[in-house]
Design a binder for these strands. Structure first.
Length: 406
DNA sequence: AATGTGTGCAACCGCCTGGAG
DNA sequence: ACTCCAGGCGGTTGCACACAT
């Protein structure tokens, strides 16, 4: 049996306040001030509990309350405060004169939250909603299904969408993620989603382009592209943000590259590692060329101990151990070159498992299907890559895509 | 006109904290 | 050290209203 509230115990009035009650409370507080709330009802002649009186005063009767719609300035302020403070409504309200925590909370729940979600921003994290993020399971499912349907319609086969396998983000305009569609014969299609950091969900288009892939990935690849219209006035992604999606993610800005493979840790056939490093030239806090910041986001069966990091001629070359069991199989796949100016430039990355789709388990064995790997990054500087992909998304054919990138 | 559905908001509920005894 | 209680807080509910069918 649950506890009864104080009002029930004392047989006090509940529900909406009448104008008479408001007047009694207002007159009492303006005359005697706020003292002990528990004594207020008796002194003011109200059949209410002290808590109820306090709430009524704070949220409605207080003379310094600002009423009416929230201004754009207030809205922006709430957004930025929420990003820092989360649902600490009282603290947020303390920064907005004349507004109550309850009012801000209601405004958030009924308006701002929806607004953010419509803009593709996770209201909890204030970061763009990524396919594969925990916060967007429904949306993820919808997009996945949508991609599946497109693939099925286009090829009339039974392709199913695998997890999105990579993400690139230029921090200003677009995030681009992609993945593979696979059918029962393990034939694969590539799909890309180019998504404005904030997008208008009502204005997008998709198209298919097909042709040959010179990387040997798939001779009859389809590229399925969603392009959400760019709205440059909307919120950019935090430049220092560590992007995550369900598998491989990169985040970069000048001189910093971070990334992670968030593949299912429980599956032995998948890789799960993360990295983060600064190059010396542009990261002041970077102290030595032999060490590196490295975030450890993983996980069972893998050591994320970085070794062999060499920063030389403005390039970083490093690898890390995975685990004894898999080291021989995987270690060589984890060599990168990192060039200053925030660019990745490396031939080595060609052998990197860009996506977990490069890996699969067969008969208990871990196999790397390198030939089928999605190898967009190659040796291209990230900014160039982004530019290329932006153009790719309006390119008429997959041939054009490959030529442009390579 | 009647009914159903969605939305915004005021108020409540229950947990937590800190001070008094 | 412990209990009690008031106040503070965030989550949730339920009502009134608007709009759609």
């Amino acid at each position: 049996m649950g506890r009864h509230s104080c009002c029930v115990k004392q047989k006090l009035r509940k529900g909406l306040w009448s104008p008479e009650e408001d007047e009694k409370l207002y007159n009492h507080i303006t005359r005697f001030g706020v003292g002990c709330w528990s004594s207020v009802p008796k002194l003011a002649g109200l059949q209410r509990c002290g808590k109820s009186c306090r709430l009524r005063w704070i949220n409605y009767l207080r003379p310094d309350l600002k009423r009416g719609m929230f201004s754009q300035q207030e809205e922006d302020h709430i957004l930025s405060l929420h990003e820092v403070l989360g649902n600490r409504w009282a603290q947020i309200a303390a920064q907005l004169p004349g507004r109550t925590d309850n009012e801000i909370k209601n405004f958030w729940n009924s308006c701002l939250k929806k607004k953010l979600m419509k803009q593709g921003i996770d209201p909890t994290t204030h970061k763009p909603i990524m396919i594969g993020s925990d916060h967007d399971v429904d949306d993820q499912e919808k997009k996945k299904n949508s991609t599946e349907n497109k693939a099925n319609n286009l090829q009339q086969s039974t392709f199913t969408a695998q997890e999105p396998t990579f993400l690139l983000n230029d921090h200003d305009n677009y995030s681009i993620n992609g993945g593979l569609l696979a059918d029962a014969n393990n034939s694969k299609e590539l799909f890309l989603n180019k998504q404005a950091v904030v997008y208008d969900p009502f204005s997008y288009f998709e198209f298919q382009a097909s042709g040959s892939d010179q990387s040997g990935y798939n001779n009859n690849s389809n590229i399925i592209v969603s392009q959400y219209h760019h709205q440059p006035s909307l919120r950019p992604v935090d430049q220092n943000q560590f992007e995550t999606n369900s598998n491989l993610a990169f985040s970069f800005d000048q001189g910093n590259v971070s990334g992670a493979d968030f593949s299912d840790n429980s599956a032995a056939s998948r890789v799960s590692n993360s990295f983060f490093f600064n190059d010396q030239a542009s990261a002041k806090e970077s102290s030595s060329n032999s060490t590196s910041n490295m975030s450890n986001y993983s996980s069972s069966g893998f050591n994320n101990q970085m070794n062999n990091l060499v920063v030389e001629n403005n390039a970083a070359n490093f690898s890390w151990d995975i685990s004894d069991d898999y080291q021989n199989k995987l270690n060589s796949m984890f060599q990168f070159h990192h060039q200053v100016n925030g660019m990745i430039k490396s031939e080595e990355i060609m052998s990197t498992p860009i996506s977990s789709s490069c890996w699969h388990e067969e008969g208990g064995q871990l196999l790397h299907t390198q030939n089928n790997s999605v190898d967009f990054i190659g040796s291209y500087p990230i900014p160039t890559l982004i530019t290329s992909l932006s153009e790719v998304l309006t390119a008429p054919s997959f041939d054009h895509v490959i030529h442009h990138i390579s």
